[in-house]
Design a protein around this nucleic acid. Structure first.
Lengths: 128, 128
DNA sequence: GATACTGCTATCCTTTGGGATACTAATATC
DNA sequence: GATATTAGTATCCCAAAGGATAGCAGTATC
């Protein structure tokens, strides 16, 4: 685990470039959410679609194709009737878990903070 | 620091919601990059614009306004001639540093991996 | 023969994020 | 009086992301 470098103009520019790279690969509304879903295990196309309410097949298929190209998922076709296709995470996808976990943790705490704010506001409103 | 919960359907849905929240707050092309820039210290509008090449004043001003609303930055106006305005991170902004660091680290390693791939490809091409 | 299931693709359309360019007020400096 | 500086705003515009809807191939089941 690399330590956070001291922040100078140069390391800042390096950080900006690295972060741009990451955001580019994980771009779009769905890729991160798909990885989260697939952490439960391999899933079929329709399962993924039902899990992520509101994603249309067109978009789902596009995102999955991009994730295949980036070696995040492997697509496996099974000779059943009707065919089943599963998508599963690669070991490389596991390298983004730290990102996902930090996003999740922050989201949880952010929501708690918002709720606290609302409680505060209500209290102040009653006191007046 | 919360441990990563075991992944079940329920925790997965909770994770999805939390991550959606986070992505919503950090949405847009620039907010994360602005936080990275401001980690060096308070900066003025034009400094930020020059630092993030290609951001237009319209977009910069919009992003900064949203970040102010989310309590990520504080805007300070100084009575100089001409006026100077600085933006600086709040303590709350520091809570997203773990996200930023994970994005940066992944980006660095991803780039190294890509370069390795290219080297491999060249080697194989020569061997044939 | 109609319907259902799988995993998609095709077409069309809308939204919106964000870029380009120009412009403002207020003062100081040349 | 022209120009530069600050921190923006105003207006227009465009490309891309993504949603809505329909449909297809292949087989099984009712």
């Amino acid at each position: 685990m690399a330590a956070t470098p001291k922040l100078t103009k140069e390391t800042c520019n390096g950080a900006l470039a690295a972060i741009r790279d990451t955001l580019y690969v994980l771009s779009g509304k769905w890729k991160i959410l798909l990885i989260v879903s697939l952490r439960e295990g391999p899933m079929r196309f329709n399962e993924l679609q039902r899990g992520l309410v509101d994603i249309t097949p067109k978009v789902l298929s596009k995102e999955l194709r991009e994730m295949e190209m980036n070696e995040f998922v492997v697509r496996k076709v099974f000779n059943t009737v009707p065919v089943t296709v599963t998508y599963e995470l690669t070991p490389y996808a596991a390298t983004v878990f730290p990102i996902i976990d930090s996003l999740r943790e922050w989201g949880v705490q952010h929501r708690e903070r918002i709720i606290e704010h609302i409680k505060q506001d209500n209290k102040e409103a009653v006191e007046q």
